[in-house]
Simulated scan of single mutants.
Amino acid sequence: MQVVIDIIIPVFAIIIIGFVCGLTKIVSAESAKALNSYVLYVALPALLFYAVATAPIGELTNWDFLFANLIGILGSFIVTVFIMIFIFKKKTAELSIYGMNASYGTTGYMGLPLLIAAFGHDAALPAALATLIHNIPVIAIVIITFEWARAKNDVTSNNTFTFLKNVFKPVLFHPIMLSVLAGLIFSIFEIPLPNSLDIFASFLADAAGPTALFAIGLALVNQKGIISPSILTKKEVNTLIGMKLVFQPLLTIFLVLVVFDLEPIWALTTILMSALPIGAGTFVFAQKYNTLTKETSMGIVISLLIAIVTISILFVILINYYNLTVI
């Protein structure tokens, strides 16, 4: 119970403060977009770069950790796609958005701040790597799926170069990917960070967690009208929430406990990251491709409210199971 008071409550309290500030118009709810851009393009990349650049290269090739995360993500994605095909009779590129809802969590905006608040620098690297794994593969699948469908439908365009550019440019130039690649260069070649760059990156990294949490709360103000009694009967949304908050964590727990051999902090990071609510980034792609925007918004808000309870319970269980001490 003490860990809930010391770690969980302060983390979710920042989200609540963001919501209250937006609701009372102390901070404009429209500012959420600017804050999200700051986190995505500045603070979060700085945190990921710093964590990777200062890590020994051996820790970056923890294959059990990488595969445990990746299989958990893709497993939930693929199973959801099959459910949508065979039970809900869905088809075409929208299947990838369903899969993204079931496998893409708030790793950078909630997982990272929570783990670093609990375990400090020891959790920074596994949390950073997990964020990369949870982001890039799913984003790549969604982009490839929609660009492939667009290319097939556009009979006037046979430009392979344009297709490849539309697919790979957003992935390769994603701020998370660029920051990790930059960090890898420093780690692989054992380049010490100059003091000025060290201080610069660490300052920005420290701002990533609180700002991201505040932005989540602020963004909820614009979503407060979504929740209604009719949502509880919408089977598609309930299925996606169940896949994200129940199936993916259970699959990942099986992988961590039975299939792979992970050190305690890496195991806890893997499981906790899998249990996070549907990530806000999912809505960005739903909106970009004008697909399932309403269902995705519902899923994000409801899964976040549920996760406040489920994450708290899971976090306490994992800390006790692995006998870890919070800072």
Rank of each mutant, 00 (worst) to 15 (best):
L112R: 04
I143S: 01
A127D: 07
I143E: 01
P137Y: 04
T145K: 05
A118L: 05
A124I: 05
H121T: 07
T145Q: 06
T107W: 10
P113Y: 12
A117Y: 15
N135A: 12
G105P: 09
P113H: 09
W148A: 00
L132C: 02
M110G: 03
L125W: 11
H121I: 08
H134Q: 13
N135G: 03
V138D: 00
L125N: 06
P113Q: 07
F146S: 01
V138A: 04
P126F: 09
I139E: 00
G111R: 11
L129A: 04
L115Y: 03
S103A: 15
S103K: 12
A130W: 05
I133A: 03
H121V: 10
P137C: 07
F146M: 06
L132Y: 15
A127Y: 08
L129E: 00
A151T: 04
T106M: 14
T107A: 13
H134T: 08
I141G: 01
A151M: 13
P113C: 09
M110Y: 09
D122S: 15
E147D: 08
G105T: 11
I143D: 00
I139A: 03
P126M: 12
H134E: 08
I116L: 14
A117M: 13
P126S: 11
I141T: 12
A130D: 04
F146V: 02
P126L: 10
T145P: 05
A140K: 09
S103E: 10
F146W: 06
P126C: 10
A117I: 03
P137A: 08
L114P: 05
H121S: 09
G120I: 07
A124Y: 08
K152M: 10
Y104L: 05
S103T: 11
Y109M: 09
R150D: 03
P113G: 06
I116Q: 15
A118G: 05
R150N: 13
W148H: 09
A151W: 14
T131N: 15
S103L: 11
I144T: 14
S103G: 09
L132N: 01
G108W: 01
V142I: 12
G111E: 07
I143N: 04
E147I: 04
V138S: 04
I143L: 07
L125P: 06
A151Q: 12
L114H: 07
I139S: 00
T107N: 13
S103D: 09
V142A: 03
F119Q: 01
A149S: 15
E147L: 05
K152T: 08
M110L: 15
H121W: 04
T106P: 00
H121G: 00
N135S: 14
T145W: 02
I139G: 00
Y109G: 03
I141V: 14
T107V: 14
P137M: 05
T106F: 13
P113N: 08
A124F: 06
L125M: 12
F146H: 10
A130G: 15
E147K: 14
L132V: 13
V142H: 00
I144C: 09
A149V: 02
T131C: 14
I141S: 01
L114D: 07
A128M: 12
G111T: 08
E147F: 06
